[in-house]
Design a protein around this nucleic acid. Structure first.
Lengths: 155, 155
DNA sequence: AGTCTATTTTGAATGATTCATAAAAAGTGG
DNA sequence: CCACTTTTTATGAATCATTCAAAATAGACT
């Protein structure tokens, strides 16, 4: 599901989509490969290590272009900032902590196909199925249960 | 899945949660019962028929209070405005047209329980599973295929 | 009716994201 | 390797949904 340490030739992957290979796009993809589920803001801070002058607006345009050609997947849970990950086309799902916003991958429960096929389509042609399990992570639960006040999270 | 024409005693339902029954809350619930998946703005226009002076901020506070006590469910697909529906606790899912934003209910494919249980929880206590099938509805597809230009939707 | 408190209203603010336009860089052919 | 064309990025401002703090109102209980 993740290719930790696996070196990817991003410039050629980018050109294969018809886009030009730019330092911004490569740095964004490398950052996402190393740290999935990043927000635009987190991406900005990561990419700045390679390109100190980059701005948040450029992050948005860069990441949008990568979403458009299918190299990146955009995750939008709730009212908080969108998150991005390398598109693996493995139909995996996500668990999401409402309190701290943490997101983790989970494999598809029912194999690949069933998740993509709703029982009714209401005349729609479906191309994506998003499955998100919302809850609370143990760190946040511990912080809530802490007897001496909220020492970790303040929600 | 929907109780069309089924009269519900909203004031008592509201009081049963510990909240006070107000005209704003009743009108909001009645509106949602008749037209599910409404945005805050659509809700505003509906509720204004009963309460012409109501504002969008009040819609937000009213609907939020109803979400908090479990009478209303908030749906957040993508970057567009959140949508609301009466909470039926039937674990149903949604199909969503990306172009026109239309949303329809679909029954849970695998019964009630499995959808609530991811294969891994990564140490999270899960309370909700959201399943959304994204695609394009036939109306929008027809508009795109129309030979004489875009007569219906402009995306 | 009178009181207390929850709720709504009002006006302003926030945060994520998008939009023009201008500047820079990537790819292409000579 | 240079000049050219087009894509891409940077810049500054704007938009949208949503939230916040404080004041006004209205349920609910006696």
């Amino acid at each position: 599901m993740s290719q930790t340490g696996h070196i990817i030739n991003w410039p050629s992957r980018i050109r294969a989509t018809g886009l030009r290979s730019t330092r911004q796009r490569v740095a964004t993809l490398e950052s996402l490969a190393g740290r999935p589920h990043a927000t635009a803001d987190e991406l900005l801070n990561q990419v700045r290590h390679a390109l100190p002058a980059i701005t948040i607006q450029s992050i948005y345009t860069v990441v949008q272009s990568l979403v458009d050609v299918g190299l990146v997947r955009k995750l939008e849970f709730g009212p908080t900032a969108a998150r991005f990950e390398i598109q693996h086309f493995d139909n995996h799902h996500h668990v999401h902590c409402r309190l701290c916003g943490r997101i983790e991958d989970v494999a598809c429960q029912h194999g690949s196909a069933p998740c993509m096929t709703p029982v009714e389509t209401h005349g729609m042609v479906i191309d994506t199925a998003d499955v998100v399990y919302h809850g609370t992570c143990t760190d946040c639960l511990d912080a809530l249960d802490a007897p001496d006040g909220d020492t970790h999270v303040s929600v």
